[in-house]
Design a protein around this nucleic acid. Structure first.
Lengths: 213, 213
DNA sequence: GTCTATAGCCGGATAGAC
DNA sequence: GTCTATCCGGCTATAGAC
């Protein structure tokens, strides 16, 4: 009976929080191990290198989120003629919020990690996700395409990446934006409120007719 | 008659390109000065520190873009009842593309710097821009608000930041996305083509009615 | 204004005792 | 598995000659 958490888990827990807040390259192993209250050398013992620690942090979230998202999309897909874009995006809310049950602030940490990863890793993360979770992604992309059949495939490719940018940038800036919104408008939004604000924005953008000029 | 460019300018030119490609913290002064073919110590002589170099790089673009954008928006504003959101966003195309005349690839470099800056600087860039270019920003925000009067002010705050995220993330990933689009769909988009794709997406999202549930 | 040389620090990673 | 001690490379910044 352990009186404290596994060293490996302690490292992952401390690392994901710091990575999400500060970015990968701005977070040193020394900072991680001191917050985790473990020895500096234990990172290399358990993970081999900082790069592999980063992958382990991301995989721990993706392994929970991706299958869960897939299931929710497939549930809609049973009656595909009724699934609007808003419904498809909204189907991701539950898998996202369930990450909060896995760990405190899990939802926002996951989305921030995703954004940091895409921007810092020069394409490595995109490769990692499509090769490891490609089938789950395909489920999602197919559902979106079916509910917006007037959008050509190539255009949809761009719009889904616009969508990814919208949400990950928003989440990377969420703390700062929340502070401003509180000061200027008296609003107090949690992560779920922000997600619910951004979904109509993304759904409208994805579905807007292509200009024919 | 100088046979080569000013040292200060050579540093700025090399730095902005590397900052845009790799991010600020991933770009060392050693890399900048070797690409610029100037002495390492000259950065500190001309700019004082790396942080001030970053600000100088950003200011060189903002000083061109912001007044130019303001002028274009005001030109629309003479007949405000006719300015749709699409027209307002499209009015920024000319100022953005003029950055390409200032320097090769200026448009995309600027937008990538903006994205990197917002994400890496933990709010410092937001403060810098609003305090130094607040009046130009206000012109833009007022025009948008006038053309979408059904959106409450607080909601518009969020949507404009969604929009910022959409475009800067897209531009930060533009090279990778272009490669995929070329391989998968035979598309060959330049920066302008991407901007013209993203504007309808953003305009639709900003204007979509707020849910009343 | 430009150079060399170097100070001083912090980073990831590892050797080897326990 | 965990620890201390250390290597070694890269970083920003600066001193001081020219």
């Amino acid at each position: 009976m352990a009186s404290r958490t596994d060293t490996k888990t302690r490292i992952l827990d401390a690392a994901e929080k710091l990575f999400a807040e500060r970015g990968f390259s701005e977070t040193s192993l020394r900072l991680i191990t001191s917050k985790a209250e473990v020895n500096l050398a234990s990172v290399n013992y358990h993970f081999g290198s900082k790069k592999e620690l980063i992958r382990a942090v991301l995989a721990r979230y993706l392994d929970v989120f991706m299958p869960s998202a897939s299931i929710e999309i497939n549930r809609l897909h049973l009656a595909p003629e009724h699934a609007s874009l808003n419904e498809i995006f909204s189907a991701l809310i539950k898998p996202l919020l369930e990450l909060n049950k896995v760990r405190n602030g899990g939802t926002i940490i996951f989305l921030q990690l995703l954004g940091r990863g895409y921007i810092e890793s020069q394409g490595h993360l995109r490769w990692f996700i499509t090769t490891h979770y490609g089938e789950h992604l395909a489920t999602f992309v197919k559902a979106v395409a079916a509910s917006a059949p007037h959008i050509p495939q190539a255009e949809m490719f761009w719009r889904l990446h616009f969508t990814l940018g919208t949400i990950v940038f928003t989440m990377a800036s969420a703390d700062a934006l929340n502070e401003i919104a509180a000061a200027d408008y008296g609003e107090h939004n949690n992560t779920e409120a922000i997600i619910r604000k951004v979904i109509p924005y993304m759904a409208a953008g994805v579905a807007v007719p292509v200009l024919t000029n």
